[in-house]
C-alpha cells in the first residue's frame, strides 16, 4: 500500500488530494471536493496523463522555434518517446496557432499543435 499527495488539475480549485493505493487500485481518497477528483486520482494511479509542451525548430520564420503542445493529455510514460520526435524536426514558416505539427507522434493518440504563430522572415 502506498500513499501519495496529488493535486487535481481539472479545475481552478486545485484540490490537494491524499490517496492511498495498492498497485492500480485506489483504496482511500481524501480532500477532493467533487467526484471528478476521484476520477482524476484513479487515472493518476493507473496511467497518469499529461499535456506535453515543448518546441520545434522552424525554417524561414521570424523566430527559430515554435512552441507546441499535445492537443490532449498523453501518458506520462510516453512523454520522452514523443520528445524524441521533436529532436531534429524542422517545420516551415508561416505557422498559425493551432496548426498541426505532427500527427500521432510516436504512435500516441494525439496531435502536436503549434501554440504560437510564426511569420515568414
Amino acid at each position: 500500500m502506498r500513499e501519495k499527495e496529488i493535486t487535481c488539475i481539472l479545475c481552478p480549485n486545485g484540490c490537494d488530494i491524499l490517496i492511498e493505493y495498492s498497485g492500480d487500485e485506489l483504496l482511500e481518497i481524501e480532500g477532493a471536493i467533487c467526484p471528478k477528483g476521484k476520477e482524476y486520482a484513479e487515472q493518476e494511479i493507473k496511467n497518469p496523463l499529461r499535456t506535453l509542451t515543448s518546441s520545434v525548430m522552424v525554417k524561414g520564420g521570424d523566430t527559430s522555434l515554435v512552441s507546441v503542445k499535445s492537443n490532449k493529455p498523453v501518458p506520462l510514460k510516453n512523454v520522452m518517446d514523443i520528445m524524441k520526435e521533436f529532436e531534429d524536426l524542422k517545420v516551415n514558416a508561416p505557422i498559425s496557432v493551432g496548426d498541426v505539427i505532427i500527427k500521432k507522434p510516436a504512435g500516441i493518440d494525439c496531435n502536436i499543435v503549434a501554440t504560437r504563430e510564426v511569420k515568414n522572415k
Binding site: 488539475i9 499535456t51 509542451t53 512552441s67 503542445k69 496557432v97 501554440t115 504560437r116 504563430e117
Partner: peptide, 10 residues
Amino acid sequence: EVLTGPEYAY
C-alpha cells in the same frame, strides 16, 4: 480552459 502561455497571450 487550460492554455499555454503563448496561447493565453495570443
